[in-house]
Write a protein that binds this DNA or RNA. Structure first.
Length: 126
DNA sequence: ACTCTGACCAGCC
DNA sequence: GGGCTGGCCAGAG
């Protein structure tokens, strides 16, 4: 077939990104760039952001996607910010001033690859 | 076809 | 720790 070795169409990329986001386990967080990497689309962090901003897919754990700094991607005080923080806390993620503590948003996944099925969440920790 | 914008990232100072 | 710059992809005007 005339050359289409990879996902060159936006719809295909979008599907891959959605799958990668769904693959994030509860209590885990991932950066936009990391999600793009898992989707097989390195460098497409902005595309991930765009897909999430569409908000079409119901049940998508979009709140588990953070910036590479571990910060919430919404401006502090906005609705999206507030909701994302609450959702993360509901899953046991410790959020402090819009920033996730205890986990790395974008660690070196050189060997980590796909995340473990479940992560032990300490009940309370400081 | 061009320009601007966006739930971004990595590098450098 | 913070701020600037360039690069990135896709959609809207």
């Amino acid at each position: 077939m005339p050359g289409k070795p990879n996902a060159t169409t936006p719809a295909e990329r979008r599907r891959l990104i959605l799958a990668a986001v769904r693959a994030i386990a509860a209590g885990e967080v991932a950066g936009y760039g990391e999600v793009a990497r898992r989707a097989g689309l390195p460098g497409c962090a902005r595309l991930v952001a765009r897909v999430l901003s569409a908000g079409d897919e119901p049940g998508l754990p979009w709140h588990r996607v953070l910036r590479s700094d571990g910060r919430v991607a919404f401006p502090a005080g906005s609705e999206g910010f507030d909701e994302q923080v609450q959702r993360l806390r509901a899953e046991g993620v410790q959020v402090e001033a819009g920033r996730v503590r205890g986990q790395r948003a974008a660690p070196t996944l050189d060997e980590l690859l796909w995340a473990p099925p479940e992560v032990p969440i300490p009940p309370h920790r400081r």
